[in-house]
Design a protein around this nucleic acid. Structure first.
Length: 271
DNA sequence: CGAGATGTTCGGCT
DNA sequence: AAGCCGAACATCTC
């Protein structure tokens, strides 16, 4: 489920626990999401510490823990394909897929991931870890310029545009449904090669990437409500959907290894 | 029951 | 040699 905006939504769910001490930690040390992290190090560092705050970037979340108001440990969570966060009462008992639980007074903060493609990271220290501070510029940021996008698609000329949009190194946070939404709005066929985009098409791709990320964060990211009416989002979950603009039946194919849907009329192949 | 699922990583091939 | 593709990961749902 989780792309850019869903990740932001889940991050905020744990805000109720910010400023509060962690009384107990439970984790599934031998399961995939912990990726071999030393369970003792995590439990020792976080038990008795206070959740100081959190941030989301791309498909990643960073939770800061500390003592006496000073940061001492950093927990990263990537939700993978099926991960999510939630809050339970303090009487909560973890089940099979609850890989990480923080009990505080009156509540439990829970990370669940049945398919276990998610990933926990953990670092101690006074400042955010390198893997966090070196994430690429957000699509919605001023550093995400049309010139950088043109250079990127030119370099990835053998990749389909759909494939390029899924590359986290340049489009951090964009996932399968957002990529389809961006291409539909930009009227670009997902199977076209990145290297064939005209300068004008690259500019449209840049513009729509930013619009989709921004609006998704304002809707899905705030309270998990659907994106606005008229978005491709609403028809792309079934092969029988029709284009919100022209009512043409949409097409389905595997592009860049992912199920991809588009409007054959609005997004023609033209090579 | 089999296919496919909103993600990443790795190995193999060009 | 960079970069693309398909398979693998582990489980659940339709």
């Amino acid at each position: 489920m989780p792309e850019l905006a869903e990740v932001e939504y889940y991050r905020k769910l744990w805000d109720v626990g910010v400023g509060t001490r962690v009384l107990r930690v439970a984790l599934h040390a031998d399961k995939r999401p912990l990726r071999g992290l030393d369970p003792k190090a995590v439990i020792t560092a976080l038990t008795g510490s206070t959740l100081l705050g959190s941030e989301a970037q791309a498909k990643q979340m960073l939770f800061c823990f500390g003592r006496r108001g000073k940061p001492t440990a950093w927990l990263g969570i990537h939700l993978g394909m099926t991960g999510h966060l939630r809050v339970e009462p303090s009487s909560f008992t973890p089940e099979k897929h609850d890989h990480l639980v923080f009990w505080q007074a009156g509540r439990a903060l829970v990370f669940t991931d049945p398919r276990q493609f998610g990933r926990i990271r953990f670092d101690e220290g006074g400042s955010p870890p390198l893997w966090w501070t070196t994430l690429p510029p957000a699509v919605t940021s001023p550093e995400f310029t049309v010139d950088r996008l043109r250079a990127f698609v030119a370099r990835r000329k053998k990749s389909t545009i759909k494939g390029a949009l899924l590359m986290q190194e340049f489009f951090p946070g964009v996932g399968n449904w957002m990529a389809d939404e961006i291409l539909w709005r930009a009227r670009l066929n997902p199977q076209r090669h990145s290297g064939n985009l005209t300068p004008a098409e690259s500019k449209t791709l840049w513009h729509e990437s930013r619009a989709v990320c921004r609006i998704a964060l304002e809707t899905v990211g705030v309270d998990f409500k659907d994106p606005p009416a008229g978005w491709f989002f609403h028809v792309r979950w079934s092969p029988k959907g029709s284009c919100p603009r022209c009512r043409q039946p949409i097409k389905t194919a595997t592009v860049a290894g992912r199920t991809t849907r588009w409007c054959p009329k609005c997004q023609p192949e033209n090579r």
